[in-house]
Design a protein around this nucleic acid. Structure first.
Lengths: 110, 110
DNA sequence: TAACATACCTAAGATTATTATGCATAAGGT
DNA sequence: ACCTTATGCATAATAATCTTAGGTATGTTA
């Protein structure tokens, strides 16, 4: 923790990446998945997540499908075709960014 | 290059890192150094840089020293003692963040 | 003399997150 | 019965951080 602010800008990419691996997911599931995958390092807040999902949907990168499970509402999101393409771009950019940062932190390597 | 928005939140750490290696630097020099080190990948805008420097100074992490070179003003910044300590923390957080992101992107490795 | 490089700065706007709420159902403990 | 925790959605006010677009000024180069 303490590095929470560093991931500013990468939330959308994280969402897209997860959806590229899981076909469909709902919001709450995404928060839990990220927490599990990062062993609690990264906690996505709902105030960030839901607006992000809505934005991705508005941009046509995600489709929504509402379901009712155990009498509780769930909104399943999945990648659209253009969402899949964009995911490739975003992931490439993120990898490139990480490379760039490592280059800055450790100029010797690389 | 498209990933410009990803580095949101890491500018201060980049500045601190550079100053930990160069004793003292001035603003313009920092922008050029980052551009060179990242081969043009990362371009720090002045609108982001100067406020960041002022903030780090206000937090007591940097000291300023004004100089005149070729009849032009230069403000040299250097790490204070607490700045050096904080640099260690920030760098550790950034490395941890990068690790976390790579873990998300590539769960197999690690 | 015009353009570009050097060198500083700030203000308006955009983006993206945190924090604090709110609503609602289910499950588990006391 | 009651309270807390978990599940599941959402938004609004605030904060942090950046981009864009300006401004000032000197030195160098075509």
């Amino acid at each position: 923790m303490g590095n929470q602010k560093l991931y500013k800008g990468s939330l959308q990419t994280i969402i897209l990446k997860l959806l590229s691996e899981n076909d469909k997911m709902y919001g709450y599931e995404i928060t839990q998945k990220v927490k599990a995958l990062t062993k609690g390092e990264l906690k996505i807040t709902e105030g960030a997540l839901y607006p992000a999902l809505h934005k991705l949907e508005a941009e046509g990168l995600l489709d929504v499908e509402v379901a009712k499970v155990d009498n509780r509402l769930r909104k399943y999101y999945k990648l659209t075709e253009s969402g899949s393409k964009e995911t490739v771009n975003r992931l490439a950019q993120l990898e490139e960014f990480i490379q760039t940062m490592q280059h800055l932190l450790n100029p010797k390597l690389t």
